[in-house]
Amino acid sequence: MSEHPTASLDDVVHQKHRLGILTVAAEAKRVEFGYLRSTLELTAGNLSRHITVLEQAGLIAVEKGYDGKRPRTWVSVTSVGRTALAAEMSALRALVERHVASGS
């Protein structure tokens, strides 16, 4: 019997906001902290905590710099993060398919 899809879910990636950060970052070369905050509708402190978790897991890279005098923080997804996101998405899709199949 095949393994249940929930076994493939990663606790670090699975959290809704962290999944959102990875999804947006995977679509671009890099994404700015303020863009993530407004897109995901998070407070700066909350977003910062999620970014720290993802960075410590090696899923994203954080780059701090300046745009003129304004400090800017840029986030980019690593190859490990891209792989983890793909695995998470396929596990989620498998769960939904399983749910639909069992309900029909």
Partner: peptide, 20 residues
């Protein structure tokens, strides 16, 4: 779960549109 996937699709669409 399907809602989450729908939200992520929407996020992806928005990110792509903002890059155009």
């Amino acid at each position: 779960m399907a809602d989450l996937l729908g939200d992520l699709d929407e996020l992806r669409r928005r990110a792509r549109k903002d890059r155009h």
